[in-house]
Simulated assay, not measured.
Amino acid sequence: MTGPAQGVPHRHSGLDRGISAPRFATFEHAAGGDPGLARDLYVWNRDLSVAFLADIAILEVALRNAIHDAATAAWGAHWYSDPTVVLDDRSTRQLSTAWASLPDSVKRRAQDPDVPGRLVAQCMFGFWTNLLDAGGHVGKPPRRIAADYDALWHAALKHAFPGGRIEARTERRRILADPTGDRTAAAETTFTRRWVHGVCKNVNDLRNRVAHHEPLIHGLPLNGRHRRMSSEEAHRQCLMLARMIDRDLAAWLDTQSSVPSTLMARPRQTALESGPTSPS
C-alpha cells in the first residue's frame, strides 16, 4: 500500500473520532475492508477535493464574469433589473438572496456603477448555471408566465462562450471516435444553450459535492440524471468549460491544476498485500 497521503499516519485517534462510522464505511468498502487503506483513501479524498476546489475557484469567477459581461453588452451593467430580462422564480430568488447579502449602504445606491460588480460577486455558481437552463415560470396564477431563457441565450449569453462551437465539435468527434461512444449524445453535442448548460451543470454538481466533503472515490452522481461521472471525466469537463470561456485561461489551468497528479497518487493495495495472483 502506498504511504498515507500528505504524511498523515493511518492510525490517529483524532482522525478516527472525527469520521462517523457510516461515512467511514464508504472508504472501508472501497479499501476491501483494510482500515489502514481506508484512512489513506479518506485523506486522499480530501486532497482531491481541495485540488478540484482550487480549479473551480478560478473557473467560477471566469464564468460569472463572462456571463455578466455578455449580459452587460446587451442590456447594460444593471441588466438584472432590466424589465425586458425576464427571470424565472428560481433565478429571481437566487438573485434576491445575493442582493440581501450586500451592505445596506450599497443597496441604498442601487444605480451606482460599482453595484453590479458587487452583486455579481455574491451570486453562486448555481445562479449562472441556471441562467443557461430552459427557464421556468415567474409569478403566480392567473399571472404566471414562462421565462424564455432561449431568448436570453440568443440575445446575449451565448457570447459568454466564444470557444463553445469548437469545443462542441471536438467533443462530438471524440464521442464518435470511441467504439463505445453514445451516438445519441454525439448528435446532441452541438453549441446550444442546452449543451452548454449540461457542461456547466456537471461542474456545478462537482463543486457542490466537494464543497460538502462528499466522497469522490467512485466519482460523483449527477443530479437528476441517474448516472455517475468519474473524477477524471469531471476534470475534463472543467477544462472544457474553461476552453469555452477563454482558451488562454484553460491552458493556464491545465498547467496549474493538481488534480491529475492527485488522481495518480490514489492509495492502493500493493500486489503483495492483495495476495498471490493466480498462475497464468
Rank of each mutant, 00 (worst) to 15 (best):
P4D: 08
R11V: 14
R11P: 13
H12W: 09
S20G: 07
A21G: 09
A21M: 07
R23H: 09
F24L: 07
F27W: 05
F27G: 02
G33A: 09
G36A: 15
G36L: 14
L48M: 15
L59Y: 04
E60D: 10
N65G: 01
H78C: 05
H78V: 05
W79Y: 04
P83L: 06
V86C: 13
T97A: 14
S101N: 11
S101T: 12
S105W: 14
S105E: 11
V106Y: 12
K107E: 00
Q111P: 04
D112I: 05
P113M: 05
P116G: 03
L119H: 03
N130S: 07
A134V: 13
G136V: 12
R144S: 14
Y149G: 00
Y149W: 00
L152R: 03
G164I: 00
E167A: 06
R169N: 15
E171Y: 11
E171K: 10
R173Y: 02
A177G: 15
A177K: 15
D178Q: 13
G181T: 04
A187C: 09
A187L: 12
F191N: 10
F191P: 01
T192E: 01
R194W: 01
H197L: 05
N202W: 08
V203Y: 02
R209M: 05
H218N: 06
L222V: 11
E233R: 10
H235A: 09
L241M: 03
D246N: 08
Q256D: 12
S257G: 09
L263P: 06
T270Y: 02
A271T: 14
P279Y: 07
